[in-house]
């Protein structure tokens, strides 16, 4: 190889390698890594968030596909996604469970009492330790747990029609079709 070809080639190779590597690095600073992907769901056992309703423990989510939504009554995007949650079970055929992050019981009762409660059960994560165990950095965040208790899908931020159509629905079809449930 002629020496004058070395430099352009080196630059070209560097760019190609950097481009390839960029697919492996998480370049969206808004999104934090999904570190628990495909792992067994972190164990938890939370008291009920509302009087007269069940609490939520990880064993409740074993043995079937389930959607878990971390939320808080003080969180604006959670209110934004609430209408989507209200019809989610009907549309997906998958039970929806909630985990209330650092919330106040009266505020929660007032909000869900007024807007409707879409959850089978809500765990009250008062100190936010379950939130940390699941690797969250903010609410809302939604997960899918498969029939074997593994955390297989997540979405950070408010659910909307586009996320349902392009992300959640096709994914659930795959999970349920795969016989994992």
């Amino acid at each position: 190889m002629k020496p004058q070809h070395v430099l352009p080639l080196a630059i070209f190779v560097t760019i190609v390698v950097a481009f390839g590597a960029s697919f492996h690095l998480n370049l969206n600073p808004e999104e934090t890594p999904f570190a628990i992907k495909d792992r067994s769901m972190p164990a938890f056992d939370l008291p009920p968030a509302l009087d007269g309703t069940p609490g939520l423990a990880s064993k409740d989510l074993q043995g079937h596909v389930a959607i878990v939504n971390f939320f808080a009554s003080w969180c604006a995007p959670c209110r934004e996604e609430h209408p989507v949650l209200l019809t989610l079970e009907k549309r997906t055929g998958v039970p929806l469970y909630g985990i209330a992050y650092k919330d106040q019981r009266p505020a929660l009762a007032k909000w869900l009492g007024g807007e409707g409660n879409p959850f089978r059960a809500i765990g009250f994560d008062e100190n936010g330790r379950t939130f940390i165990d699941w690797g969250l950095s903010g609410v809302p965040e939604t997960f899918v747990v498969d029939g074997r208790g593994r955390v297989v899908w997540r979405f950070q931020g408010a659910l909307n029609e586009a996320v349902l159509d392009k992300g959640l629905m096709p994914f659930l079809k795959k999970v349920k079709g795969g016989g994992a449930s």
Partner: peptide, 16 residues
């Protein structure tokens, strides 16, 4: 374990 290598201010040296 919970947040990935990303939580380390100084990223570790690995293939990624």
């Amino acid at each position: 374990d919970r947040y990935g290598d990303w939580i380390l201010m100084k990223p570790p040296f690995n293939w990624r």
